[in-house]
């Protein structure tokens, strides 16, 4: 199974990024191979729809589970269509959250925010 988490830095001690769509990196963890990959989030620089683009990348990488502090409605729609489950992070560091998820301590994210579409842009 593949897990992904938005992170501030591309190392294993990184904190979780508060934004999903505009996070600088994604940490991908494969629970079978124990392989860790850090992916640059190209959606971060988008003028708009960053959540949609980031979610597209997640689905393209065939990720099963996303761990995130929050998620906007458009991104959630893409992830849902792609069968990626969303769980809410509770810890500060990414590693603690991955461990928490693996030991069944995280629950699914249900509060999907309406997004920040066009704010400061339109």
């Amino acid at each position: 199974m593949k897990i992904v988490i938005p992170v501030d830095e591309n190392n294993r001690d990184t904190s979780v990024c508060i934004s999903f769509g505009r996070t600088p990196y994604f940490w991908m963890h494969d629970t079978e191979t124990k392989e860790d990959t850090f992916l640059v989030n190209e959606a971060a620089e988008s003028r708009g729809g960053a959540g949609i683009k980031a979610a597209q990348t997640i689905v393209d990488h065939k990720i099963d589970v996303l761990l995130t502090p929050r998620c906007g409605e458009n991104a959630a729609e893409v992830l849902k269509a792609g069968d990626t489950k969303i769980y809410k992070t509770t810890q500060e560091t990414a590693r603690e959250n991955i461990d928490a998820y693996l030991s069944g301590k995280l629950s699914e994210l249900h509060e999907i925010h309406a997004g920040f579409h066009g704010h400061g842009e339109n």
Binding site: S46, V59, E77, A81
Partner: peptide, 17 residues
């Protein structure tokens, strides 16, 4: 504006974006 996504062989249009 990333108003389009292609998921599971289906194109999705986000009208508000």
């Amino acid at each position: 504006f990333n108003a389009l996504a292609y998921i599971k062989d289906q194109l999705i249009v986000f009208e508000e974006v």
